[in-house]
Design a protein around this nucleic acid. Structure first.
Length: 297
DNA sequence: GAGCCGTGGGG
DNA sequence: TCCCCAAGGCT
C-alpha cells in the first residue's frame, strides 16, 4: 500500500466519527447522565455477552443497585442470582468484589485512574480502558474484538484479526488514536460501534460502511481469511454445561438446596461432583451442613 | 500461553 | 439444523 497504516488511520477519523453521530445506538449506559458505575456494570455484562441479552438484566441490576455501595452491601450470591442467564457467572462475583473494593479503597465512587481501575477484580486491559474512556473521557486505546476486526480489515488489509489479541493490535490502536482526549474517546466508541453494526465478523455490510473506499482489505480485493483454523467451542457434555445446570437450580431456589436436587441435574456422578466442587472452589456455591448448598453469603 | 469459563440467537 | 460467535479475564 502507498499509505502507511498510521496516515490511513487519521484519514478515517472524520468519516467514522460522522457515521457514529448518525448511527450510534441508544443504550442506557451511554446516556449523558449514566455515570461511571453504569458504564462499569455494562462493561462487565458485555464481556462475551451480546447487547440484546444484557439489556434486561442491566435494567434490573441498576434499579436495584444504583451505586457500588448498594451492591457491596449484599451477599455475593445475590449478584450471582441477579446475573440470571448472562453466562460466565464468575463475572458477577468479580463485579461484586470490585464494588466492595470501590467502597473500601475509593470512597464508593468508581475511580477514574486507569491503574486503579486495572487493579479491580474482573477489570483487565480492555475494561479499564473502556471505563476510563467512556465514563471519564480519557484518551486510551480501547481494544476489543470489534476494534481488532475493524483495524485488521481497514488498516492491515486482512479478513479477520488474529485469534487472540496481540501486542501489535494494541500498538496499532494506540497509534491510530486521535490526539485530543475527547475526540479519542469518541473515536474509541465509534470504532467499536462500527465493528458491531457494520464491520461484522460473518458478513460485513460494506455497502453501508463509511470507510469502504479507504479500507485496506477491500482495496486488496477482499481476500478470504487464511489464518489458522478457529477452534469451535464445544459445549454439549462439558463441565461448563453441568455447572450451568447446577447453578440454575441454586439461582431459582430462595434458600438452601438439598444435594439430591442438584444430583437430578446430571446423570454422571463423577462429572457432576467435579463440576460442583469447581463451583465451590470458585466461590459461586457455598456448601452447608446436612448436605445442602446455596449461593454464597 | 493455552485452556477454561455459560448461554442463546442469527445466518 | 448446525455452527459461529458475542464490548474478556484469569490461571
Amino acid at each position: 500500500m502507498s499509505d502507511s497504516p498510521l496516515s490511513l488511520a487519521s484519514a478515517l477519523h472524520a468519516p467514522v466519527l460522522q457515521w457514529y453521530a448518525v448511527n450510534a445506538r441508544t443504550l442506557p449506559w451511554r446516556e449523558p447522565d449514566a455515570g461511571a458505575w453504569a458504564v462499569m456494570v455494562s462493561e462487565f455484562m458485555l464481556q462475551q455477552t451480546p447487547v440484546a441479552r444484557v439489556l434486561p438484566a442491566y435494567e434490573v441490576w441498576m434499579r436495584r443497585w444504583p451505586k457500588p455501595g448498594d451492591l457491596a452491601a449484599e451477599p455475593p450470591g445475590e449478584a450471582v442470582r441477579a446475573w440470571d442467564r448472562l453466562g460466565y457467572p464468575r463475572r458477577a462475583l468479580r463485579l461484586h468484589a470490585a464494588a466492595k473494593a470501590i467502597v473500601e479503597l475509593h470512597g464508593g465512587e468508581v475511580p477514574s485512574d486507569h491503574a486503579a481501575l486495572l487493579a479491580l477484580p474482573g477489570v483487565g486491559t480492555y475494561t479499564a480502558a473502556a471505563i476510563a474512556s467512556f465514563a471519564f473521557g480519557q484518551r486510551h486505546a480501547v481494544v476489543d474484538t470489534n476494534v481488532r476486526r475493524v483495524f485488521a480489515r481497514a488498516l492491515t488489509g486482512v479478513a479477520q484479526p488474529t485469534i487472540s489479541p496481540t501486542a501489535a493490535d494494541q500498538r496499532l490502536a494506540v497509534a491510530a488514536l486521535p490526539s485530543d482526549p475527547t475526540v479519542a474517546a469518541r473515536w474509541a466508541v465509534a470504532t467499536m460501534e462500527l465493528g458491531a453494526l457494520v464491520c461484522t465478523a460473518r458478513v460485513p455490510r460494506c455497502t453501508q460502511c463509511p470507510i469502504s473506499t479507504q479500507c485496506a482489505w477491500i482495496l486488496a480485493g477482499s481476500p478470504p481469511y487464511d489464518g489458522p483454523p478457529r477452534k469451535g467451542q464445544t459445549y454439549e457434555g462439558t463441565d461448563r454445561q453441568v455447572r450451568g445446570r447446577l447453578l440454575a437450580v441454586l439461582r431459582a431456589a430462595t434458600g438452601p438446596v438439598p444435594k439430591k436436587s442438584l444430583d437430578a441435574c446430571w446423570p454422571e456422578e463423577i462429572q457432576r461432583e467435579r463440576a460442583l466442587d469447581g463451583l465451590v472452589a470458585d466461590g459461586l456455591v457455598e456448601p452447608l451442613p446436612r448436605n445442602r448448598y446455596q449461593l454464597p453469603h
